[in-house]
């Protein structure tokens, strides 16, 4: 007597195939760790000694092969493998909203107008790993001030790139695109917040957010939006991708690095520095205590 419908048979066969396929794919992917080519050198970049940390730099190879960039794929190795599917020229960055001088920039115009300096920052990912990265960039405040923000500019919203050629955009990544981020205006104007255009003195590799990205070192890495195309100054708090995700189960708008507030699924008290084995203690604001005054009146357990 037959009790199993045909669909079960078929699924069982799929399941066997899936197992074998996944193992093979996994093995191939593990062996073929993408070799990342070095990009063109950036001219005239000098280190800013005010923003140097006395810690070992994370190797270029790790910074460029271990990325979260869902538009280029959800696994850590995907963005470097699929980097070529992102086209960074021509590229424009549009600044709109509560500004006296809105402007649509060509990326090369930005590179010319805002000379980059080197700043070594710690990067703390929400997934409890961290790196030390020599970014090349310029203060976000300088860029924003050029557009003369009005008194109604209370927040800054960032929108990142969506190109049909990017594999994550075509498939299912679990989050909607474009990826949205946001900062309060005083956060955006803080001297630590920069727009980065390079790392290790070279043009940003695509998987690290070329041609221009945000770096906010006292917040979890996902706040530092990659490959930015639109910046909008506005009066209300903008929706951001992860704070909206599944009714807010991931993180709130602020997402400041905070060892006392756990992720729903893991502790944030410690982190693993890429290249090390034992976890180290996570520091409040990722060690950038100079930003504490921005949140003096706030309960950071509530606004996490």
């Amino acid at each position: 007597m037959q009790i199993t419908p045909k669909s079960l048979y078929l699924r069982r066969r799929d399941f066997l195939k899936l197992g074998a396929g996944a193992t093979l794919l996994g093995s191939a992917a593990a062996l073929a760790r993408t070799k990342v080519d070095h990009g063109p050198k950036l001219a005239g970049v000098k280190p800013n000694p005010k923003y140097a940390v006395d810690e070992k730099l994370t190797p270029f190879e790790d910074i460029t092969t271990y990325n979260n960039f869902y538009e280029l794929g959800t696994d850590k190795g995907d963005p470097s493998e699929n980097a070529a599917t992102l086209k960074t020229r021509p590229w424009t960055v549009e600044v709109t909203g509560e500004v006296g001088k809105p402007k649509k920039w060509d990326i090369d115009e930005i590179l010319k107008a805002f000379p980059a300096e080197e700043r070594i920052y710690r990067l703390r990912c929400v997934e409890a790993w961290s790196m030390v990265i020599p970014w090349d960039g310029f203060p976000l405040a300088d860029f924003l001030k050029k557009h003369e923000p009005t008194s109604r500019a209370k927040y800054v919203a960032f929108e990142t790139v969506v190109q049909p050629s990017m594999p994550g955009v075509k498939g299912y990544a679990g989050i909607p695109f474009p990826y949205l981020e946001g900062l309060r205006i005083d956060e955006a104007m803080h001297p630590l917040a920069i727009l980065a255009v390079g790392l290790y003195g070279e043009q940003l590799p695509n998987q690290d957010g070329a041609p221009i990205r945000l770096v906010v070192p006292w917040k979890y890495g996902f706040k530092s939006a990659k490959s930015i195309v639109k910046i909008r100054l506005q009066e209300t708090q903008p929706p951001t991708t992860w704070s909206q995700y599944a009714g807010g189960v991931e993180y709130g708008f602020y997402a400041n690095v905070n060892p006392d507030v756990d992720h729903p699924r893991w502790s944030q008290a410690k982190e693993r520095r890429i290249g090390e084995i034992l976890r180290r203690k996570t520091l409040m604001f990722n060690g950038y205590s100079e930003v504490a005054p921005l949140y003096a009146a706030m309960d950071l357990k509530k606004f996490y």
Partner: peptide, 30 residues
């Protein structure tokens, strides 16, 4: 073999942890 040759990339502990979890799950299903 991977540990002795090509390694596991930037975060080897995470990779080994996840691979072992995956193998366990597949064997449980089998």
């Amino acid at each position: 073999v991977q540990a002795l040759t090509v390694g596991f990339g930037a975060d080897p502990i995470a990779v080994v942890l996840n691979d072992l979890g995956y193998i366990t799950f597949v064997l449980l299903a089998l």
